[in-house]
Nucleic acid binder design. Structure first.
Lengths: 341, 341
DNA sequence: TTGTATGCGTTATCAG
DNA sequence: CTGATAACGCATACAA
């Protein structure tokens, strides 16, 4: 601590006011005469005052902190979401304490304890490790984004609508066989709706379909190998049919497209491909990929609105916690590019 | 505020100790009898105590906060760096307040003011908007990552070495003409060394070279259009020669590779391509791209070491600020993949 | 419009 | 080994 901080006491002494008046200068300036405002204002920069928000928080209980827990930032979806959340600073002036966690529940609970000890007013959770029941038990406004959220409020993409749009496009384009490629997602996860919608839509329109949930792996290479296997299988099984492939995300879609290109040097008319997420890879691919675009900005914005609302409620004298969690769905948009006709 | 927080006062009352003893229980437990430790420990969870770090900070001045300012998280480089920095939590237990800023100096100054008001102990800057001189004036430990840093400590990739390795490989592979494609970087930016090394190496080995710094644009499409123009020019100018292309980053490299593939359906032997960064796109491309890999984990780790060291110094009774800023360079590694022989 | 007194939850100093 | 008491920097009733 080089030189001690300048405090209200110092300013008060210097200006011959009381600390209270200095406090008021910041919080209710109109209650001072213009003359005195000016005096204090002068004193502030001759003394070089710098405010101390922590002291303020301790005194009034409003930390303006929001905790965020993301699984990682490697996936574009998460880093983009974080960007959008951070950018809400200009509207709400909440500060964000960010933790990245995907190594188990204990670690994550520790992080939350730590966050709580900093008096965060709210929490945004994107990781999947803790149950919503556990999260609800912390007695603090929580918003889940795209995860299981039975006991807490949440924002999710309308996965059903997204998948429906993709599937419909493939049907409209007269594909002979529709194929959905995905990991074996749990039914509690919102993204499971992508599988549901695909299947139900295919059934409704009575088109043949094939659902392959064999994707797995922790590295790009591992996953690529699985996709290659799937590609081979499809090539063998549906040789002369027009294949409409709907993949769980753009990374898979890009892999699949690359395999096709490596074999044929182009995208033959017997293939249509649709991804999910509208991540950068979808446009950077050898052929810009048609994809279901998640409206990450809208999701982030909605999450903040919901959270702010609940945090405001907490500040009232008799805060009424939500009777039921609020769940909102954001409709994704189909972005047509060059892998569909 | 549902129920008031449990404080030391409550615990003291309950256990018939003083607040001081409770404090000691947490900070110097050995100075209590085991029996009394046990008593307090019991009281803690029957009362449901939750610690308040803000109060602690106010009392002892150590916030354990570090501020981070990144330009954006859209670029993989930044999001990966942030991930790595966040992961240092397990070693140092510093918490991170993150701001994203690339819209001008005023905004960024405001952010820093805000960060300072939260008593951050150190600052990590990845954005380019504020001069190192300005940053140094804040009188707080600052580490710059991959940016101008005359007046503050910094970590950068050894761009010269990286570029040297790439250029050498292209020479070794007997390219007739070496071409470097980049934006027109300022000479103060560390990345300028990539251009320098390319030119100097070409001269030293007396191979013909061509430096094209015409890349510009704010969107993928804009940049792609420029790259296309450059591609056309190169095709016309060096039709039958073996071309060794070294691009400023993997995104450019991927664009270039896609253009080649779209024209030839493969990578003809008259082309070699090397990117920079080892970002995901380099492996996800139609052909895995040879690239200069920045060791982001090492950079982040080194940055934290340096920062922690300086923050520790600040906590001493007579802190000696650094006489000169410390600058460290991290050597990148050449990752050979399928776009070089 | 301004001041006094007290509290926020913890640590630090000094005494015993 | 334990306790009183005064910081830390600011906010807020309540008075004036």
């Amino acid at each position: 601590m080089a030189k001690k901080q300048v405090t209200f006491a110092d300013i008060a002494e210097y200006t011959h006011f009381s600390k209270t008046t200095i406090s008021r200068y910041f919080n209710h300036p109109d209650s001072l005469t213009l003359e005195n405002q000016e005096k204090i204002s002068q004193a502030l920069d001759t003394l070089g005052y710098k405010k101390n928000k922590l002291a303020k928080v301790l005194a009034n209980g409003k930390s303006e902190f929001i905790g965020i827990i993301v699984p990682n930032l490697y996936l574009h979806y998460y880093s983009e979401m974080l960007t959008q959340l951070l950018s809400s600073y200009s509207n709400y002036h909440y500060k964000f304490l960010v933790f990245s966690s995907e190594h188990g529940a204990e670690e994550e609970q520790q992080y939350i304890e730590e966050l709580l000890s900093y008096q965060i007013e709210g929490l945004i959770v994107l990781s999947h490790t803790l149950s919503s029941q556990k999260l609800a038990s912390y007695q603090i406004p929580v918003i889940a984004i795209e995860r299981e959220a039975e006991y807490i409020s949440s924002i999710t993409t309308d996965n059903y609508m997204g998948s429906l749009q993709a599937t419909s496009l493939l049907i409209r384009d007269k594909c002979d066989i529709l194929i959905h490629i995905n990991v074996n997602v749990e039914k509690t996860v919102p993204a499971y709706d992508r599988i549901r919608a695909f299947e139900e839509t295919c059934k409704e329109y009575q088109v043949p379909y094939d659902i392959d949930l064999s994707v797995s792996g922790n590295s790009y290479q591992e996953i690529l190998n699985v996709i290659r296997r799937i590609f081979t299988r499809i090539e063998e099984k549906y040789p002369n049919q027009k294949k409409g492939i709907f993949l769980a995300n753009d990374t898979y879609a890009n892999m699949f497209l690359n395999l096709i290109f490596q074999k044929y040097g182009k995208l033959p008319p017997t293939y249509e491909i649709i991804g999910f997420d509208n991540s950068p890879i979808a446009s950077e691919s050898i052929l810009p990929i048609t994809t279901v675009g998640q409206q990450i900005d809208v999701i982030a914005q909605t999450a903040m609105e919901l959270l702010v609302q609940q945090m405001e409620e907490q500040k009232k004298r008799a805060p009424k916690p939500l009777e039921k969690p609020i769940h909102k769905q954001i409709t994704p948009v189909l972005i047509r590019r060059n892998t569909t006709s």
